[in-house]
């Protein structure tokens, strides 16, 4: 079991890093030939950074759009962020002091994450418009995240896993030394679903995470009259 999961995690990590890396390379390489920021847009680079920070931290556009999706989406993402940061303690020795500090918050953040996910799932089923646009994969994705969050929360609040051994196993993986992995079924389900999530990341809608950084309607400066903006393939047209 230790070896099986080691192979799974090495594979998942490789897929995640290489897959997302190649998508990011494609986005970065593909030119944006025209200035298309959704206006009113910032007129300076600094303004754009501020706009992006607002999108990333408070989901500004979504807030304007729909308070329910915003509430559930924000709870889920921020909950997940804290939970992920909390997990750093399994990968660091000694554990960084700020990671120690956020442990209790991260623990309860899992509840926020689950509530958010349940809210999103309920909307997907109940609201006719959202149901219409949902493919089976959209439900499965929520299901997978619920399994990850649910098993994780169970180990925190209900049962308890052999954290000492798990940490030793994970630290071992990082130096290519395969150690003992506790065979608690809840833990194994948790780990397996995380690996699946990592593997499907580069071929699914989870690409919205890197995608938002490359979205021209959000990251472009509104200055087309001041600075001429031409893509390489468009310059070729001019040379004809």
């Amino acid at each position: 079991m230790s070896i099986l999961f080691a192979v799974l995690f090495y594979f998942a990590t490789a897929v995640l890093v290489l897959g997302v890396g190649s998508r990011i390379r494609k986005y970065a390489k593909t030119p944006a030939p025209l200035k298309i920021p959704t206006t009113p847009a910032p007129t300076t680079r600094r303004g754009v950074v501020f706009r992006m920070i607002k999108e990333l931290t408070i989901f500004e556009s979504l807030f304007k759009s729909n308070k329910w999706i915003w509430l559930f989406g924000w709870l889920f993402h921020m909950g997940m962020l804290l939970v992920l940061l909390r997990h750093l303690r399994y990968f660091t020795d000694p554990v960084w002091s700020w990671v120690v500090f956020i442990q209790p918050f991260g623990k309860y953040a899992s509840i926020a994450m689950l509530l958010g996910l349940i809210g999103l799932l309920v909307r997907r089923i109940v609201v006719d418009r959202v149901r219409y646009i949902s493919a089976p994969s959209d439900f499965l994705m929520l299901g997978l995240l619920l399994v990850i969050g649910g098993t994780g929360a169970m180990m925190s609040f209900v049962t308890s896993a052999d954290i000492i051994s798990l940490k030793s196993y994970l630290l071992g993986l990082m130096v290519f030394d395969i150690r003992y992995l506790p065979s608690d079924p809840i833990l194994l389900v948790h780990l397996a679903s995380v690996a699946i999530l990592m593997i499907i990341f580069p071929i699914s809608k989870l690409l919205h995470a890197p995608g938002i950084f490359f979205s021209p309607t959000r990251n472009q400066v509104d200055n087309p009259r001041e600075r001429r903006h031409v893509a390489a393939w468009a310059i070729k047209l001019e040379q004809k």
Binding site: R129, G211, F214
Partner: peptide, 21 residues
Amino acid sequence: TKYRSLSVFLDSCVKCGACTD
């Protein structure tokens, strides 16, 4: 390959429903 907007937009939608109305 010519329009980053298209490439990013086709991949990024999570079907959240914010635009539906």
